[in-house]
């Protein structure tokens, strides 16, 4: 899959998604920092990923 453009579901900033992205992959918006999740690949659809909660970590 070639790179495609998506909109941040929070701030609307445009983001380029690299080719080879996988369904479920998460990335952050360079503009507002919201975590974005790839929901579907074809056509590409993104949504807000689970936002960090207080017991998130490693």
């Amino acid at each position: 899959m070639d790179g495609q453009k998506v909109e941040c579901p929070d701030c609307g900033a445009e983001k380029e998604v690299a080719g080879g992205v996988q369904q479920g992959e998460v990335m952050s918006c360079a503009c507002c920092g919201t975590l974005i999740e790839v929901l579907e690949l074809s056509p590409i659809k993104v949504g807000k990923a689970p936002q960090i909660e207080e017991d998130f970590g490693e």
Partner: peptide
């Protein structure tokens, strides 16, 4: 997993 992080994808 909660999110498919790079670790989880790998």
């Amino acid at each position: 997993y909660t999110m498919l992080t790079p670790e989880n994808a790998s």
